[in-house]
Structure formats: C-alpha cells, structure tokens
Design a protein around this nucleic acid. Sequence first.
RNA 1: GCUGUUGUAGCUCAGGGGUAGAGCACUUCCUUGGUAAGGAAGAGGUCGUGAGUUCAAUUCUCAUCAACAGCUCCA
Length: 646
Amino acid sequence: MINITLPDGAVRQYESGVTALDIAKSISEGLARKVLAAKVNGQVVDATRPIKEDSTLQLLTWTDTDGKATMWHSSAHLMAEALEALYPGVKFGYGPSIETGFYYDIDLGDRTISDEDLKKLEAKMVELAKQNSAYQRKEVSKADALQYFSTKGDEYKVETINELQDGAITFYTQGGFTDLCRGPHIPNTSFIKAIKLTNIAGAYWRGNEKNKMLTRIYGVTFPSQKELDEYVTLIEEAKKRDHRKLGKELELFTFSEKVGLGLPLWLPKGAMLRERLQSFMQKAQLESGYLPVVTPHIGSKQLYVTSGHYEKYGKDSFQPISTPEEGEEFLLKPMNCPHHCEIYKSSPKSYKDLPVRLAEFGTVYRYEQHGELHGLTRVRGFTQDDAHLFCRPDQVKEEFIKVIDLVLYVFRSLDFTDYTAQISLRDKEDRSKYIGSDENWQLAEQAIIESAAEKGLNTVVEYGEAAFYGPKLDFMVKDALGRKWQLGTIQVDYNLPERFELEYIGADNQKHRPVMIHRAPFGSLERFVAVLIEHCAGKFPLWLTPTQVKVLPISDKSLIYAEKVAELLKKAEIRAEIDDRNEKIGKKIREAELAKIPYMLVLGEKEATDGVVAVRRQAKGDLGTMPLEQFIGLVNDEVVNRRPFE
RNA sequence: GCUGUUGUAGCUCAGGGGUAGAGCACUUCCUUGGUAAGGAAGAGGUCGUGAGUUCAAUUCUCAUCAACAGCUCCA
C-alpha cells in the first residue's frame, strides 16, 4: 500500500500501481470524467500512469492551466492524426500547446493548404475525437525510434530523436497515429468536444530563418461547444479594442504611405493626449530630481561607433546621411544615451554631484524589418520618455529602486494592473552578442535582481533578452489579442560609461567611473498609447481623454444658453465642445456615445430657465440635472484623482 | 526579410470579362425635435500600381507596392 496526499492535506491509501484516474474514481465518478492529467509530486503526468510510491497528487481538470495545456497538446496529436488521414505522407515538426490552444508545424511537400481546407480538417478531427481513442504511452529505444521514423520518412522527427538520450524516448499512439512525444496526454480523445482551427502561417523549422519554412496550423479545443462560443465572443471583443481600429475611429493617429512605413502621424486629438501624458511624466520626474535636457535628432556616426551601437546595428539601421561638401556622416539617432553621455561629460563632476538624472522625450529612429511594423506598437520613429541616471556604484540600488517606484506609480495612475516584470539577462550560450566584462555584467545583474526582490516584484527571468550593453528589468503587458509588448524598461549599464570614459572625482580625490541607469517608464509614447487604448477600450480616464464634455443643445432655442455653458466650462479648464448642428438630440447623443465622450450635457429650454445642466454619462445614461458649478466640481474631482473611466 | 491572405467611395463592405453598387459619413433643402440614427435631394471611385492575355480587363495571368496573420528580428 502507498500513501497518496491530496491537495487538501488528506492522506489516502491505495495499492501500489494505482493510477490518478483510479483515485479520481474512488472519490467520485463525476470527478473521474473530468480528469485530464495529474500532478504527481509536482510533475505533470498522464492520469493513466501507475503510481508506485508515496506521493502527493493533484488531479488536473480543465480549470487548471496544466490541465488545459495537456488537453491542447493532445489536440495537436489529434490534428496530426487528421492531417495524416487527409494528406498521406505529411511530415511533422513540433506540435506543442501554447497559451491559448496549440499548433503543429508540418511539411506538406508540394501541397498547399488553405482556409477552406481547415474546415475539412476540423470535421475530420471531430470524427476522430468521437472514436474515443486512448492515448497510449510506450517507451522505445533510440534505435527503434529512429527506425520507425526513418521508415516513415519523417526527417524532422529523426533529427529530433538524434538529439535525445537513449532511454528517455517515448511514443504516444492514439487511433492509427503514433508520435514521438514526452507527454503527458489526456486519457482519450473523447474529452475534445469542440474544435476550432484558427489560422495557418509559415514558421521556420526550429525557429531559424535559415531553415526550411514549414506550415503551421493553429487551433484551440474545448470540452464543450459553450466554451468555444465564449472564446469566439472573446476574440471578437478583443478585435473591437484593437488600437489600430480605435485610433482611426477616435481620430488619434494615422499613417501615410507617402510619409513612410512605420512613421505615425499624430492627429490633434492624439497629439493632445500625448502631451498630457508627457506633462504627467515631466511633473513626476521633476519631483524625483530629474533634469530636462534636449538633444538633436541626428548625431555623428563616430558617436555611435564609440557607444558600440554602430558595430552592433549599423548595417541593420537607416544608413548614415552625409554633408554635401565634406562628406561627414551622421546617423538618425536610434538611442538618446550617447548624447546624454556627452552632456554628462560637458562639465567635471564631483561625487557630491551624483546622481545626475538627465531626462528627455527623445524621438529616435530605428529601421524595423518590413514584416515587423504593427500599428503604434512597432514603428520606425518613436518618442521615448527616456532618462539616464549617472550614479556612484554605491547609489545604484537606491536609484534603481526609486525608478521601480516611478514605474509603478505610472502604472497605478493609469490603472495598469496586468503586467509582468521580466528580468532580461544574457543568452546563456552565446556571449558574443554582448559588450563588456563578465564582472560588470554580474554587478549589473545583481543590482537588478536584488532591487526587484527588495520591491517584492513578481518577476520572471528570460535569458537572451538583455540589451547588448547590459541586463534589463522590463515591464511587459499584453495587447487586446494577447500579444506581449515591452512597455517600461530599466537597465543597469557599466559599459557605456567606460566607452565614453565618464568620470567623477571621488572623496579620495581620485577619478572614478559612474554607473548608468537607462530607464523609460512608458517605454515609447507610441507603444504606451497603443496599449492604453486597448487597455481602456478607447474609454480614456477623464484626465486624459481628448474631449471631456460635449454640450448638446436640444434646439436652436437653447443654443445661446448652451454656448454660455460651454464657455464657462472652458474657463474652468474643462475640455468641452458644443454640438450646435441642426440635428435631433437623439442623434447628437448617439454620436457622442460612439465617440466615447465621458460626459454629455443635454441643454433645453427647461435647463436654460432653471440655470442647470442635465448630465449624461457615457454608457451609463442620464444622471439628472444639477447646477453647473456642481458638475464642474464633479469633473475636477475625477480629473485630480485620475480616476479610471468606470 | 520569409510564408500565406487581402487590396472596390472618407469608413465598413457587396459585386463581377462589356468602363461600378449599398450603408454610414459629407453637401443643400425641409424639419425646432427632450436622452443611442427625422425626411428629401445631391456630390463623391480611371476598382492599390505596372505589364500581359483579349475585340474588350476593375474582373483572368504575372510582377510590384501596401495592409493583415504568423515566423525571424527588436539598442
């Protein structure tokens, strides 16, 4: 007999060799019907694997992330089975589960597959799922594994097996399909009730652009049709939040082929929104001891040779522009830090002067590959809320923590709660991508890790995500469609001070090297606005929104009163507009609602007579009448406290 | 940059070998209307661009540009 400890702490006894599924059945049949996989001693395994020693056990169902992942991974196998049935000879790459759903990379040879084919494939999957095929695990020797896939002619699997250790290779078979797989899998295909294949895309074999491009089919499955319907609704809602769509509708920004790809044009409403964000940041920075600086949009090529940017990105950047006579070369600035280093150097510094915090909304230009451009989130010209802190080594941590505080203050002020703090470190294998000594990197990494820990940040570590001159603490958020973007970033840098030979005179009257902290809480204004739009679905908080109040006279008869009200609102520094068109009130309201104007004042003869305003709140409706002063007080309160829209 | 899909009016989209259509927006007139679309008339497009096939191309073919999805990249 063995002891099984359940999540609630209860310990039950079972025969050795019992499976998680057996245990589930012993608890209740209903539970057993829902079990997708099991976590035994912290490891996710098949619910049908025998347990032979005392263990802790958690039964995984659809509500567990690992349960979903197992189901989706099994769904990838089901899709592979369907593919093989419909397209004999198809070869398979990788087929993992992802955050929502799964994909499988396949090689169809000369054939192509279209969106219409996905319907057939879905139908085949449904048909196969109904056969209740069990997912059967089998341990195989490396030789046998190679033999199987060589015979089958699947070179991708052969390549994968060649890199595996003998003795650690398993196959899973369901129905007539066998795949190389570590597992785990759901007990059988009947759990997969609703299937949606979402899209087809190309993907390089093993993610390397030098390799052959395979066809990737994405899909998602659910335990019932109801959940699939909910998912479809969710996707539709997300699409409505897309900042590219809302940016157009709300007249915030536009693009022009003639101006150039990835070069956003800010329309008046968007520009004003941007300016408000800038003033907000400037105020916060002034309070935190930052000093403003302004630098030009171009800099001598030599500047970037010194910084190392030229060597690293020179050929993948906009190429230098040169003077007509002398042929001097200048680069559009891709970074503000070299300029700021030169500002630091413009006067000798004492240890008493540090830290020096130089801030600039610096517009930078980077060549991004054509296929990378994406709305405002990935552009070729953008403005960073950049600053560089030059400090003594003993000040690094304190400064770093203050910057974290600032970033968190910004996020809080804008109601951003869903973000992750990512510690971006060097690639473990390839160190050639980075400049500077190991010692400096270790110091920088340590400063970041310690500061993040001290602030109690929830962090994830990502290797290979560091900048070439130093590690970063990146604040990541997701867009409406679940794509992850880096917003704020804080970087510790021991390398640029060396390259620029930055110095200060210490208390010992000797020259010392300062440490630099690069930081941008918004990251770029473009990306930040994009994410903000999606975050609030275009319903900006009152302090940011372009038009705060729309004054709606019911007819010409109340026009004079309405104009007076609009005038008084403007005097109170409230962004008010009047809709004096010859239209019915219903239409004016509808349009203001669709434009997501937070407040509407409906003014007719009654209000004019009583000297009050009838207030309507976007999406909420009529709030009744009140004196204008009271309404102004309401608006000011909402603005001062930076309340979110709802 | 790579693979795939798409490109028709300011916007959203229909159509299809014989030189184009809807809704919204816009203009004018009528209407002075009380909390999400009042009525009528009108204006607006060489169907992304360039070639080819054809008596004839916006429609078919090719190239090119751009957008979208994914991959790769991201100081």
